[in-house]
Design a protein around this nucleic acid. Structure first.
Lengths: 227, 227
DNA sequence: GTCTATATCATGATAGAC
DNA sequence: GTCTATCATGATATAGAC
């Protein structure tokens, strides 16, 4: 009985923490906020997770484990299908970023709340969460990096790495800002309701990312070794 | 004498706050950290700025005033030069993002420290700083939005707005991560030292941004009104 | 303008009864 | 597993001497 309720309590804490970390950031969210929102006792966080830092890690882990497994699964399938041929760059981009963005529709996986939390966390990591995320992402990143190298043999590897980085940035920003509206502007986008906006975000962002990924190579001023 | 030193104190506080907000975020930085780092008394912040929030605003204002004035100046010059013709999209992008990125070389304007602070703040704004930044940016954003509409008459306006948004994201991420290294990966980029990396960031990012801005339009699944 | 000293409050964490 | 009560710490802000 008590054990059954504790599963509930654990999930309630995770849900509340996810929402509040998204809205106010890690430092801006107190344990009292979290337990108050979750309707559980203040001491429950330390009982179930040990510390606030461990709670934060568990908030991410419960979503990222699924996401990164899924990304691996999809890339496996793409590579099996392509056989000896390299996978198309657009398919790789969709496997990585599309899989992420489609979590928005999946409340079971955190929906937009988790996406926005991830978006803001990727540019504002405390040292401990930066290290944690780097570790969680390492395997997947290495696989996708290699896939892009094979898919774009004519593009210097350093360039691909940078462009992956830029793509992460565009995506983080897009998901961090969606629905709470664009951060720095108050632009109204006519003829679109909130549902449209989210549905159309994926193709919009995909076009942008592929365009950037396949852009002509930059000319460096020093014109030296463009490796 | 006392008045002369106070100018010093003000600047020392602003410099320390800029560096610490960049490294630890707003909530993660205490007034004790700031005044300790600046070598001034704890009470000096409240004397000179009134509150921590006002200090944060002043940290941004002293850099953004210059940046956004400069962006307006450059766009004025481009439009005067173009006469009746629309300005080239790549020139607009460079005027907006290039002007920002070139602040990295200008220690007088905050250099990389301010850039990285801005990068992380744009995806992690407290409510008060979000409102403040939106206000600071409004005039400039409206000018650049209009310039892009004229430069790309064949692209739907909603698409341009979204792509500007994606460009902001890629740029924020690029400047937030530079030098402290890519957040989510431990990729090594061979054959490049730190200086190269920064020098080459601008052309790299510019190619990516223009590629995304000029990408083929997305196909929406519902195929309805692609406005 | 600058400083010390302090008021007031919120934080993360834990001990120990139930 | 859950609760109350509390500890130790650090936060912002300010009053008042110099």
């Amino acid at each position: 009985m008590a054990e059954v309720r504790s599963v509930d309590t654990r999930e309630r804490i995770l849900d509340a923490a996810e929402r509040l970390f998204m809205a106010h950031g890690y430092d801006g969210t107190s344990m009292r906020h979290i337990t108050g929102e979750a309707g559980v006792n203040l001491a429950a966080v330390n009982y179930h997770f040990g510390s606030k830092e461990s709670l934060m890690q568990e908030v991410f882990r419960r979503r990222l484990d699924w996401l990164n497994d899924e990304r691996m699964r999809v890339l496996d399938a793409l590579e099996a299908e392509a056989g000896e041929q390299p996978v198309k760059p657009s398919a790789i981009v969709d496997a990585f970023f599309g899989t992420l963005l489609r979590m928005a529709d999946d409340e079971k996986r955190g929906g937009v709340t988790f996406l926005r939390l991830l978006g803001r966390t990727l540019t504002d990591p405390s040292e401990f969460i930066r290290a944690f995320l780097a570790h969680e992402y390492k395997t997947v990143m290495d696989r996708y990096k290699e896939a892009l190298f094979r898919a774009l043999p004519e593009v210097p590897k350093a360039e691909i790495v940078w462009r992956f980085h830029f793509m992460l940035g565009a995506t983080s920003y897009a998901i961090a800002g969606t629905d709470a509206l664009r951060l720095v502007t108050d632009w109204q986008i006519e003829d679109e309701d909130a549902t449209d906006r989210l549905d159309r975000l994926v193709p919009r962002l995909m076009s942008f990312l592929i365009g950037g990924l396949r852009a002509p190579l930059p000319q460096f001023a020093d014109a030296a070794g463009a490796d």
